[in-house]
Amino acid sequence: MDTDAGAVSLRQVDQRWELVCPTRPELVAVPNAYLGYLADRNYSPRTVRTYGFGLVAFCRWAYGTGKDVEAVSTDDLLSFLSACRQQVVAGRGGPNVVDLAGRRTDRLAPASVNLRLAAVAGMYEYLAMRDPSRISPVPKGRPSSWFAQGERSGLLAHTKRRPAPRSRLRLRTPRRLPRALTPSETRALLASLRSRRDLAIAGLMLYCGLRSCEVLALAVTDVDIGGRWLLVHGKGGKDRRVPLDGDLAAAINAYLLTERPDTDSASLFVVAKGPTRGQPLTPAGLRTIFRYHRARSGVGAGAPHALRHTFGTALAEAGVDLAVMQSLLGHAHVDTTARYIHLAPTHVKASYDAARTRQRDTSS
């Protein structure tokens, strides 16, 4: 991508994210208005930041090609898509290094490119909202037909979601099944954890299915140890109540009584030592903890989200109802939860063997 990397940057000012371009400030006027619009709509700061980085890449491309953001055409957006596909990521292996699928590892992943394209498409939808006579350069595809089973019928059929046109400005991405840890990997990873805090964090992911951001968002008052319930603050500002395992409740209680330092912070998990002792544990701090214990235990796949996948897989193998799984995992759509059904080899094999037995009995 032919850009000046230093021409456009992203910064946070007064809890808001904005793009900066000293040499062409008019280039970032529309992107900044769009980021302000997202903040006014109460999008999470993390989402606004992600969209901001996508718009940084787009504005850097526009800066390098001499384009005006408000005068971009569909052909220009397709050129930006091609530039994203050809961009070389610094610090990765050269063109001779490929993954198992034969793709170069020094290029952006399709999901990363789609994040940029989603930010750009949202910005032009925002411009079209401000001026209905304006024609958006984002090419539209066929309407989406993403419906859950039973959503089109019944007494509440009138409440079904209307299919929205999907943008053709996106890459096809492989849909991989979530990777769960094996029992031996789980035991090895948990055995490497020494502090009660780290055991409680891993337990909340493994036995309650919490995301890492949900673990860090927990306050002390969100944990009902006696009643064994958790109030989880999920993605998109959606709260849910999750039952708390008895042994995990005891581990959290032991952490609160013996390890958690005296602090004014309301966060459940705080830094245990060092200059930031008593301050809320950060995402970077959580990643450091798991990175250290992955190396110590030899479980390379032991990332925080793998523990959540292990929880979902265990529910599927136990035959838990899909709607209950969706509620526990906090998924917005049941299709996301259904992926875990494909990870229940015990039940799949049992059903397959039973069907084959019936076939043999019928044919004999």
Rank of each mutant, 00 (worst) to 15 (best):
S133I: 00
L230I: 00
G66P: 10
A164F: 01
C84F: 03
L193S: 09
I225N: 02
Q15A: 14
P345T: 01
T336K: 13
R130D: 03
R107H: 13
R196K: 14
Y37P: 00
G285F: 11
L199D: 00
W17Y: 14
C213F: 08
R162L: 14
D106E: 09
V30G: 06
T105H: 01
S73E: 12
V72Y: 04
F58K: 02
P345A: 04
A5D: 11
L199N: 11
I252M: 10
A57G: 05
C21Q: 05
S297T: 02
Q359N: 03
G246T: 05
A148P: 09
G330C: 07
Y352P: 00
L100S: 11
L10C: 07
N253F: 06
G234W: 07
A39V: 08
V220K: 15
H305Q: 06
A188W: 04
G36A: 13
F53L: 09
G226N: 05
W146A: 14
G274P: 04
P132N: 08
G319T: 02
V13Q: 13
M205L: 09
A251L: 14
H347E: 13
A180S: 12
I252R: 07
Y352I: 06
R240S: 03
E185S: 09
Q279P: 02
F147G: 11
P261K: 08
R116E: 02
R11C: 08
A249S: 10
Y124C: 10
G150A: 06
A180P: 13
A57Q: 13
N96T: 01
G274N: 06
I289N: 08
W229T: 04
L210I: 00
S265H: 08
R103K: 12
L10Q: 06
Q15H: 09
V113Y: 12
M123V: 01
W61V: 02
D106A: 00
A249R: 01
T173E: 15
R104N: 01
Q15M: 08
P143W: 07
E185Q: 15
T263G: 12
G94W: 10
R166P: 00
G300H: 03
S212L: 09
F290E: 04
R179D: 12
A83C: 06
G91H: 10
R179V: 15
L244Q: 02
G300E: 13
R46W: 00
W146L: 15
A7F: 01
I289V: 14
G203Y: 01
R296A: 14
P137D: 03
A219P: 00
A344Y: 09
G203M: 05
G36W: 06
D75F: 00
G93R: 05
L231N: 10
F311N: 00
P165R: 11
R211G: 03
R296Q: 11
V88I: 11
R134H: 10
G274C: 04
G285A: 08
R277Q: 14
D131N: 15
Y124I: 07
P178H: 06
P110T: 05
S364T: 01
